[in-house]
């Protein structure tokens, strides 16, 4: 293994001041250049909060614990201004909904050019020229004619391509993609995934790919991190986790993927919902929904066990 670009170690996030709620608890992972970590879990599992913690935009008021290192720089103690200059430049992010993540009154070319003006002090004409080149790179035909268009004049797929162009404008080392294909229809999803993977190969970026869709995750990821209620349920090499899931939650997620080869009258579900982070109890937070739960499960939070392929379950 090479030296990781980014290392999270026992990362915790508490929101609120008077009655802080632990939103993320003990998140540890590494991002390697040119590799993709897929983060999967239901809504409210802390996937997006992990992304926000990475770029340092956790909503105020908050307290962050543990360690987050970019190369040999500790990000959690970095001052705000230096942290801001890393955003977009070394760590960039793509959002789920390209319509709302683009400014409706600024042309898309201008929005890409801004990135270069902010981070590289590029002149207006230089930034414009490079913005058009970037639009071409993300597969937009006739980029020169599209650059003056406003977001509402583009299709969903093209808007997401614009978002990607903005994210890669400064050639970041780490790209965070928070559900980048969820708002797109299926045929466009595949195109966007291909584009992301190709850009990653060409630029050698590390990617943190967030999705609730295990199918999408399995296509893009080298490593998988399954999150549940703000904690890691299971993590390991993608093929390993998908072929031999050891946490009941991961197994549940895999079972719920609809399979086109078998006609099913009812889609399998995991009963129940993710617990409120304020009332997680003291045991395994999945215990209430777990078919294999025993008394021991509700006594203490199980630790992550294993070496490369780890799971937080007493049965693992």
């Amino acid at each position: 293994m090479t030296i990781p670009l980014l290392t999270a170690a026992a990362l915790t996030v508490d929101l609120g001041t008077r009655n802080p709620v632990r939103i993320l608890d003990g998140i540890s992972f590494e991002l390697q250049a040119g590799r993709t970590l897929g983060v999967v879990g239901e809504s409210g599992c802390g996937k997006s909060m992990t992304a926000l913690a990475l770029i340092g935009l956790v909503p105020e008021p908050h307290r962050i614990g543990g360690s987050l290192r970019l190369g040999d720089v500790e990000l959690n103690t970095l001052d705000a201004e230096r942290r801001r200059l890393l955003r977009g430049k070394r760590v960039a992010m793509i959002f789920q909904e390209p319509m709302t993540a683009l400014n409706p009154v600024v042309s898309v070319g201008q929005q890409i050019a801004e990135m270069l003006e902010v981070h590289e002090a590029a002149s207006t004409s230089e930034a414009r020229r490079r913005a058009i080149a970037l639009l071409g790179q993300v597969g937009i035909a006739a980029p020169g004619e599209r650059a003056p268009a406003f977001p509402h004049q583009l299709s969903g797929g093209m808007r997401q391509r614009v978002m990607i162009a903005m994210a890669i404008a400064c050639r970041p080392q780490i790209l965070i993609a928070d559900e980048p294909t969820t708002a797109l229809d299926v045929s466009v999803q595949a195109q966007i995934l291909d584009l992301l993977l190709e850009l990653q190969r060409r630029e050698g970026m590390a990617m943190l790919f967030i999705s609730h869709n295990l199918g999408v995750i399995s296509e893009v990821s080298d490593e998988i991190m399954v999150m549940y209620a703000g904690r890691i349920a299971e993590q390991g090499p993608a093929a390993e986790v998908l072929a031999r899931p050891t946490h009941p939650y991961t197994r549940g997620l895999i079972t719920t993927m609809p399979d086109i080869r078998h006609r099913q009258r009812l889609l399998p579900v995991i009963p129940g919902a993710v617990p409120d982070p304020r009332h997680r109890g003291q045991g395994c937070s999945f215990a209430a929904r777990c078919a294999e739960a025993e008394d021991i499960c509700s006594e203490a939070v199980p630790a992550l066990r294993g070496h490369l392929h780890r799971a937080a379950c007493v049965h693992a």
């Binding site: 770029i55 977009g88 709302t100 993540a101 683009l102 994210a167």
Partner: peptide, 25 residues
């Protein structure tokens, strides 16, 4: 709005966000 969060994620400063993203809207 999400585009303000997106702008922050791209490293834009508060003044930049106010003048480019918020005031024109």
């Amino acid at each position: 709005r999400e585009f303000v969060l997106a702008a922050r994620a791209q490293g834009a400063s508060a003044w930049w966000i106010l003048s480019v993203h918020i005031l024109p809207n």
